[in-house]
Amino acid sequence: MVEEKNGSITIEVEQRLDELFGDSDNSSFDHSSHHPEFEDCSEALPFRELKSAVLSIDWEITDDAINRFIKQLNEIKSGYSKNKIIINMIQILNSLAVYLKINKGRAHPNTMKVLKSVFSGLEKVALSKKLSESEKKKTLFVEVEKFKELKQQIIALKADKAKKTEAKPTEETKSKVKETQETHSDSTIHMISEKAYRSALEDIKKFIKVEFDKLRKELNMHSS
């Protein structure tokens, strides 16, 4: 691979790399190395699809990715309708997905962390043959707690935002105030001009009356 004049350095680098990264993997492809903890591959397939959807959402929150995730959740749900632990976890994931779908990039930054964690818990509970029932319950409990904590964080964040909005008028509020002021001053101007118009009209009427009176007097004088 390398020319002879470069040989000594590359041989040294190769030796060093072998020391650091040796006995690490197989140069021939090893199919059995995939997820050794999950014994039943046919059972694992829907979860693999779900994981792919989780990774898609993690990469970018799009309606397509979330819809795919929810669809996959429903498929898994139908296969585990009698397993309360799994159903509860699916419900949590569904709530998180709906929240992400509505809020997208504005969602709380911890949402994806919790979603990935609940997914891992679900995968563990559904596929690991070594897990006892109490361990499964414990896993659910941990994930429920994380979900509750996230809900509290979302509520706190919303409250914080609301406080800031009250304390500091936003551009929108400012423009609304300005608009109201403008409307108010417009109507004042309108009221003033109407008053002036009425008074001018009265003046004209008076002027015409006076002029007519004068004309009448003159006509009477001429006729007499």
Partner: peptide, 20 residues
């Protein structure tokens, strides 16, 4: 990459080629 098959081999190869 998930199971690690040939991950280190790939990396070792590129390091060697780059150093050369």
């Amino acid at each position: 990459a998930l199971s690690g098959t040939n991950v280190a081999q790939t990396m070792k190869k590129i390091v060697l080629m780059t150093v050369a």
